[in-house]
Amino acid sequence: MDSKLKKLQQQYQQTTPVINPDTFAKKIAHKQKVEKWLAYSEVGLGMAVSLFCLYAMVYFAESIGSQLLFGMLSPIPIGFALWSFRLRKKQWLQQCGSVDEFLNFKKQQITIRCRYWQISAWGISVIWMGLALVSGWAYSVDNNFLVWGTSLLANTPVLIITWLRYCYVKRAAQRQNITIDTFRASDE
């Protein structure tokens, strides 16, 4: 090892940020417990809502239609809670691979996030346009315009927010992709 590197290493070790190891370990242990508890309580909550749907199906539903509705709704909360639990665990494990593998994962994640907001923005635009058409038609025949007009009005901020969010995510994704590409290009 050359002397310059040795000197740099000493300088580097000497400038370690100050940490009280005992307080630090306790703080992390506490945070880990809280996060674990939160993750399990999310699953518990999902299960409780699913059980309530089943209970409502058996005891509250007064028609076949409402029984079917509660029956179809019941697996959704627990399914969503389990999916979110597994996804979180998968994301934790992704951080244990090499940096190159992690960058692949991040690139994929950025693309998926961008695509999700793009599809949401176009989907909501289609719904908004449909509502606008129906409202126009209701207005022209003077039939239920208030209901359709209110729905259109209520959907307008959702449409605007979704498009703004999509533009923000897209711009951020471009910046993040530049960083990842630059990282990879550093060996060329």
Partner: peptide, 28 residues
């Protein structure tokens, strides 16, 4: 390995919220 991955993630998420502090390529 975990620390470097988490730090890369930190740099990327900082960029989600802010403009690039400096263009890495230009800097290089």
């Amino acid at each position: 390995r975990v620390a470097h991955n988490r730090c890369v993630d930190h740099v990327l998420s900082e960029q989600r919220h802010h403009q690039l502090l400096f263009d890495e390529k230009a800097y290089a």
